[in-house]
């Protein structure tokens, strides 16, 4: 892969005696949807901490569009695990948070967000507070807040982990349609195998700590995808393969 948007080589990190990342190699091409699948506590979020500049890598190199990534500011739009919506801000004001930090005037920020409200199923809810929204709507506000920052790449940290199964499935379908439309370059962290298969072009499987890439699988399913595509033989084969890789690494004592 010559034209990677993001390219990680031997990225490692330890916190004191805790060896979290044991040398990660990973590439994301422009317009590609890539997932990182790993057992809980495997340091997936640490990877995002490094990419967002919240912590520094202990070793390894990170390249962004071919150049070494020294200052991650302005490159990534990050969506944290829990929605992290501000309860004191209305939906519209939560959505423009990133633009506000960038110094975009309020009116201009609202103007940019307005056309997306409909697509995100939030039209008519602009003036609501987060506490008045359902879990699925909160995640859509959080994703809207992420994409309007207009960064070159999205980092999604288990965005649907806290939702009930039904809402999660409908949110995944919705995100797939949104991605069809916008073709964001995205890196998704998840521990949900079906979610990874359904949304991704490519999937990396991480081992338990210290995390390494133990498997890399392309998902050659066509797009647009529907939930039914998950029962195609190709999809079930990938799912089985991913599960094997995950179970083999997560609990070696049971294998």
């Amino acid at each position: 892969m010559s034209a990677s948007r993001l390219s990680l080589r031997h990225v490692a990190k330890r916190f004191g005696a805790l060896d979290v990342l044991g040398g990660i190699n990973l590439d994301v091409a422009p317009g590609e949807f890539v997932s990182i699948l790993g057992p809980s506590g495997s340091g997936k979020s640490t990877l995002f901490q490094i990419l967002t500049g919240a912590t520094t890598p202990g070793a390894g190199t990170i390249a962004f569009d071919g150049a070494e990534l020294t200052d991650p500011a302005g490159k990534f739009a990050f969506m944290p695990q829990r929605d992290a919506l501000m309860p004191w801000r209305r939906v519209i004001d939560n959505a423009v948070l990133g633009l506000e930090v960038q110094g975009v005037p309020r009116r201009e920020a609202h103007r940019r967000v307005a056309p997306l409200l409909e697509q995100f199923g939030l039209a008519g809810f602009e003036q609501h507070y987060p506490s008045q929204l359902s879990g699925g709507m909160r995640q859509r506000v959080a994703l809207l807040r992420t994409v309007v920052q207009d960064r070159q790449m999205l980092l999604l940290d288990e965005p649907f982990g806290a939702l009930d199964a039904l809402t999660r499935t409908s949110m995944q379908q919705w995100l797939e349609r949104m991605w069809e439309r916008h073709r964001w370059t995205a890196l998704l962290i998840t521990h949900d195998v079906r979610e990874a298969v359904f949304l991704s072009d490519r999937i990396y499987v991480l081992s338990a700590r210290p995390a390494r890439v133990i498997r890399e699988i392309a998902v050659p399913l066509g797009r647009p995808r529907t939930v039914r595509d998950l029962s195609a033989p190709e999809a079930t084969r990938i799912e089985a393969e991913l599960l094997d890789a995950l179970l083999g690494s997560a609990s070696p004592e049971l294998a």
């Binding site: 901490q49 967002t52 500049g53 919240a54 990534f76 990050f78 695990q81 501000m86 948070l97």
Partner: peptide, 9 residues
């Protein structure tokens, strides 16, 4: 998470 989010912005 809110602080991390703001820093990432």
């Amino acid at each position: 998470d809110m602080e991390w989010l703001l820093r990432s912005m």
